[in-house]
């Protein structure tokens, strides 16, 4: 029944599903879709949360199912797995640009995080690109954001946390 569908096609459909807390960023660009499994009996999407306690997970799951149903996939399933855990390096280049235009600083590469606190201290301002910034709080309005202040343009901003 689903033999003619490709993984690429399904991923294109899923670009329609946005992060409920960042409505410009698709789940595909966010990097939380880790597998698309197409079988004659149905389609299984594997997702992994950005943060374990992410409260938007259930909404994202039902949004994914809705899009698949809309494209005629009657037997669709979403499973949550930590086998391939999400890191902020999984956000695509397009996703990073979307974050920035939304006013959220994209996360710096997570690779240096655990040895270098400076990575958190000096975020780049998404408005003026200034680097003369300071960390106000490593915790923000959602689990995945930190709060910063730009000393160049004198505006507070948020950064998607590297993890």
């Amino acid at each position: 029944m689903h033999n003619s569908i490709t993984k690429e096609e399904v991923l294109t459909w899923l670009e329609e599903v946005k992060d409920p807390e960042i409505p410009v960023l698709s789940l595909v660009d966010l990097g939380v879709i880790t597998a698309v499994d197409i079988r004659p009996e149905g389609v299984t999407i594997t997702m992994t949360p950005t943060f374990v306690g992410c409260p938007a997970m259930d909404m994202m799951k039902s949004d994914v199912l809705e899009v698949l149903h809309k494209h005629g996939i009657t037997h669709a399933e979403v499973q949550v797995s930590f086998r391939e855990p999400w890191t902020s390096d999984k956000i695509s280049t397009r996703g990073r640009e979307a974050l920035k235009s939304f006013g959220l600083a994209p996360p710096p590469s997570g690779k240096n995080l655990f040895t270098d606190i400076d990575v958190l201290e000096h975020a780049t301002c998404p408005r003026c690109n200034g680097t003369n910034t300071e960390l106000k709080s490593p915790f923000g309005p959602t689990l995945c954001r930190s709060i910063h202040y730009c000393l160049d343009c004198r505006e507070a901003f948020e950064q998607f946390k590297p993890v």
């Binding site: 943060f51 306690g53 409260p55 709080s137 490593p138 915790f139 923000g140 689990l143």
Partner: peptide, 20 residues
Amino acid sequence: LEEDIAFSSMAQDKVGQSYA
């Protein structure tokens, strides 16, 4: 305020981790 947010955020992390 920042501590209010920090403890609330850590609460959400921990409750979410217990759920998992």
